[in-house]
Write a protein that binds this DNA or RNA. Structure first.
Lengths: 201, 201
DNA sequence: ATATGATTTAACCATGTGGTCAAAATTAAT
DNA sequence: ATTAATTTTGACCACATGGTTAAATCATAT
């Protein structure tokens, strides 16, 4: 077996990622993916039986790259404030490298919920651990008591939202593309500040 | 001219809203809209020339209902902390009544940016005013100094995100639908708390 | 060199899709 | 009641779309 097969498969996956992420499942065209990959449309069906299967492959890969890093930080051996600092900086950095992923996931989530649910395979994040740490540190007076499901969602919301609502925000605050890039980068420290100030007793 | 025309037009708009919001532009089918409205597909084209035009009509209406309330609060004569309290409660309440709108807008924004840009017509929100108020109250020591584009985005992020990422959050924290509803409601006070604690000097 | 299996392609196919049109049905005007 | 205008419909069209197939090309082993 030559590696050409694997190679083509990867070409297809790369092309499919790009098109699906940009257009969503419904907006993506098999022909567009084939063109992007520089191959015949029939080859798509040779490697992946259907559009759905191809999408699943792409989505799995994308989703797989999204959660583990998160999980890793959350379960790290760090004081909560350090953990938050580290998490936000890493997460926003990841988003800066893949700015269209969040909108893609949200789009899939909401227009094809069934398609998503098959892929959810337990994000693997254990909020109990997080809550435990919050409780412990609260007792020590390091942070104020709080529910993990609010703290975590607050943080992630602030990280992700500027990526999915970019056109609106950019319009309201009249930023050009360069300015918005700087804005996104500045949010790393800004979010950390904002959160730490809030959870300090 | 009878009002029957207007009536049918509204029927169509209502049906179109439902289908577009649920499926997005690309996923929506004219036939599905016609069925939902209980009319013939050709009637859609009689009242609105094309799918695009129909979508525009829907999107205009949806967008029109989204910003003005926001603008109103932001320009109100209230101290910042009161303003935030009022804004968050009102905004989350609005979202609870239209839980699928944010995902719909984000979807449109990201998969059909051009379609959106024609509708953007200046959200009308003037961030300068907000910044001015922040600066003034910061001098008075009522709140800490901060950039409006971070404060406002932080707040709106936390309000909206749980509506667009619902399946993920619900999965991670293992909530059922009722629990999630309560969670969303509880966020009204939770977000206010979180923000006020953060901006207090 | 040649047979064998994997890979790639061009040409097709069935169906779905947005959109059109002429005729029917309904409403309004005389 | 008759005409004219508006609204609604069923049938239809051109084209796009996901998918198939048989043949061609390529690689590999003998």
């Amino acid at each position: 077996m030559t590696i050409a097969g694997e190679n083509t498969e990867n070409q297809i996956l790369t092309a499919a990622s790009q098109v699906f992420i940009l257009k969503g499942f419904d907006g993506a065209r098999m022909q567009a993916i084939a063109d992007q990959a520089g191959i015949n449309k029939a080859l798509l069906h040779y490697y992946f039986r259907s559009k759905e299967k191809l999408f699943d492959a792409v989505f799995s890969e994308v989703a797989a790259n999204l959660f583990p890093a998160m999980k890793q930080v959350i379960e790290a051996e760090l004081e909560m404030k350090e953990k938050i600092t580290f998490f936000v900086k890493m997460y926003v950095k990841t988003l800066l490298e893949n700015p269209f992923i969040p909108a893609f996931v949200i789009n899939t989530l909401n227009t094809n919920p069934n398609r998503f649910l098959t892929h959810i395979k337990k994000a693997g994040i254990n909020p109990m651990l997080l809550q435990k740490q919050i409780d412990e540190e609260a007792v020590l007076g390091l942070i104020r008591p709080m529910k993990a499901e609010h703290l975590l969602v607050n943080i992630i919301s602030m990280c992700i939202f500027p990526f999915v609502a970019r056109p609106i925000i950019q319009n309201i605050f009249e930023m050009n593309n360069d300015e918005y890039q700087l804005y996104l980068e500045s949010r790393q420290t800004e979010i950390v500040d904002f959160v730490l100030k809030s959870i300090t007793v």
